[in-house]
Nucleic acid binder design. Structure first.
Length: 570
RNA sequence: CCCUUUGUAGCUCAAUGGAUAGAGCAGUGCUCUUCUAAGGCAUUGAUGUAGGUUCGAUUCCUACCAAGGGGACCA
């Protein structure tokens, strides 16, 4: 790696000057005209050497230029500003790098041989799959793919709450609906259950008697003690899960393991009960974990009715993960940030009862999706479901491609790819911790920084490559033609893909990829508009085609990392 | 009251302690006999407040102000 060579050479130079414990930081200057790499060592060590930064910089540069053998990738070294040393790499270096950009470009071996489980999406049966789940899915799928790109074996997991108070609320609501609307139990749809939940949840809040009824129902569901309830329960669970699968297919997620609260909750309860007096204690009829000793707060693990809360279920879940996949090195859990504090307590308790599991478990929080008008809540029915959002965006795309020469089926496929791409982009364009203020009109964009913009740029590049093939111009990368002049911004940006991927992967931040791809696409589009790529009379044409292909390869890989599909035409 | 996250342009977001704080949207003006105009070019506009650390702070520390999340039987 050229960056390592530069660091080493600079470190050697400093050592000659008597600076032993140096840290050489190499960075890309914000301004491309400032060179390809830059170091601030002259500013950092000037004081120690009792000299001025620029004078020190000149000395360092003098020594670097006198190096033998010379670093041949370096075209020139400049001193700028208060004392930065800027390295400019040669045109040949970039041409050489570009020749290596194939479909596998950007993969690394950071996690080679490791197994990583990623748990995300986590919708609850009997409730809507809302846009919050869409967000968790987009973030989780992208992190899974980033980890995959780092060479790890990735296992995707989904955790579904098929028992608990929310189910009791839905069943209660459904019982009322079935009676009043004379519905057939076996033909209930996912959306019926969403409404039933909203009604049950509303009644739970407003009517004390109903609240009692639902609590009793909750126990009956957990214990499977009522035949009629069981029937309704089985039907609802099945419909919900099938419905979720349809959505996963559209989103491009395939889970390896599904875990259910009904099953793992019992295991969690056992873990808690076995540790009463040791880790957990009784308090007001409930079993709690006192988080105060770790600077946290107390949480209930088993409620006074004797049922495990989410906290206890989570212990069972994470134990189960390591039962199905005993050799997991890292287990990542992705949830919304409203669960951050809760997770600290659960992980604290877990480190006492399941230390090996806790040690390898990492919680990542993404921001909340919220409306300008207030919080989205399935309890009040103020929700946008995942599929309705996808449908709405699809319609907008359909309107745009109405007059294209494509079959109805092609249009539909394209609309789905573009719609999902637009939605995922709007989620993954910003750091995952921050909330997304959701506004349908503004959040889902087809222009400027957007999913479709990236897809469009890719399609354009592919279209050029297709045309070149027809015309019979081959792409050549080995020799960089004189006619092209200085290294283009496109070349400079293309070769940064691997480091962007690496950073996004180690920091679990997909938005680094999004930002990079957007910038790259902008540079490509600008370059594209600047002159013809296919031109039989232009000796640089074959090399330009090679750049176009390199761009297409990176866009495809980069969009894959974001979980966004690429159309071939649009 | 305690814990926690976040305050950057009119709006939505970027910026591994670095150089002139970048984009997109919105606004204005150009640009399709050309490889896809879902494009390109130009232009207006910003670091919550007060201190501190540093050669250098949007970034680190402290206080304050403002907003979100959490704080015992929802998840």
């Amino acid at each position: 790696m050229i960056a390592d060579d530069l660091k080493k050479a600079t470190a050697e130079t400093l050592k000659e000057m008597g600076i032993e414990s140096q840290k050489v930081e190499l960075e890309h200057p914000a301004e491309l005209s400032h060179g390809d790499f830059s170091t601030n060592v002259a500013l950092v060590y000037a004081k120690e050497l009792k000299t001025k930064p620029r004078e020190l910089a000149e000395k360092i540069v003098g020594k670097l230029e006198a190096l033998s053998p010379k670093l041949e990738e370096i075209e020139k070294i400049e001193i700028a500003g208060p004392g930065f040393i800027n390295f400019h790499l040669s045109k040949e270096f970039f041409a050489g790098e570009v020749s290596g950009i194939g479909e596998e470009y950007g993969k690394n071996k950071q996690l080679s041989g490791k197994k990583v489980m990623v748990e995300y999406t986590d919708p609850n049966p009997f409730k809507e799959f809302h846009i919050g789940h869409l967000m968790s899915n987009a973030v989780g799928e992208s992190i899974a793919r980033l980890v995959d790109f780092e060479g790890a074996k990735v296992v995707r997991a989904c955790w579904q709450g098929d028992v608990g108070l929310h189910v009791a609320k839905a069943i209660w609501g459904m019982r009322v609906r079935v009676k009043s609307l004379k519905l057939e139990v076996n033909s209930l749809k996912a959306e019926d259950w969403g409404r039933a939940y909203a009604e049950g949840a509303g009644a739970y809040e407003t009517n004390a008697e109903t609240k009692q009824e639902i609590n009793t129902l909750n126990k009956a569901i957990f214990e499977k003690s009522d035949v009629e309830v069981n029937k309704l329960y089985d039907a609802g669970r099945k419909v919900s899960l099938e419905h979720f699968e349809e959505i996963y297919k559209i989103l491009g997620t395939k889970f390896n393991h599904y875990f259910f609260e009904g099953k793992e909750g019992r295991e969690g309860q056992k873990i808690v009960e076995e540790n009463i007096g040791k880790v957990f204690e009784k308090s007001d009829g409930a079993i709690v974990y006192k988080g105060e000793k770790e600077g946290l707060h107390t949480r209930v693990f088993i409620n006074s009715q004797g049922l495990p809360t989410y906290e206890a279920k989570e212990l069972g879940l994470n134990q189960a993960k390591f039962k199905v996949e005993p050799d997991i090195d890292t287990s990542i859990i992705i949830t919304a940030s409203e669960q951050s504090e809760y997770f600290k307590v659960v992980l604290s308790a877990m480190s006492e009862v399941l230390p090996e599991v806790a040690k390898r478990t990492k919680h990542i929080a993404h921001g909340m999706l919220r409306f300008a008008s207030g919080k989205m809540s399935s309890r009040t029915g103020n929700v946008i479901t995942g599929e309705s959002l996808i449908e709405q965006v699809k319609e907008l795309v359909q309107a745009k491609v109405k007059d294209r020469e494509m079959s109805v089926e092609e249009k539909n496929t394209l609309a789905e790819i573009v719609a999902v791409g637009a939605i995922k982009y709007s989620i993954l364009r910003q750091a995952i911790g921050g909330d997304i203020i959701f506004d349908f009109e503004k959040s889902i964009s087809f222009e400027g920084d957007s999913g479709p913009y990236l897809q469009y740029s890719y399609v354009r590049a592919k279209s050029v490559l297709g045309k070149a093939k027809e015309v019979g111009i081959r792409l050549v990368v080995e020799v960089r033609p004189q006619q092209l002049g200085e290294t283009t911004t496109l070349e400079k940006l293309l070769v940064r893909f691997p480091e962007v991927v690496e950073r996004a992967g180690t920091e679990y931040e997909p938005h680094f990829v999004t930002t990079y791809l957007t910038e790259l696409a902008g540079v490509f589009n600008s370059w594209y508009a600047g002159g013809k790529i296919i031109d039989a009379s232009d000796p640089a044409s074959p090399y330009k085609l090679a750049l176009t292909e390199a761009f297409a390869n990176i866009m495809k890989s980069g969009l894959w990392l974001l979980g966004i599909k690429v159309p071939e035409k649009m």
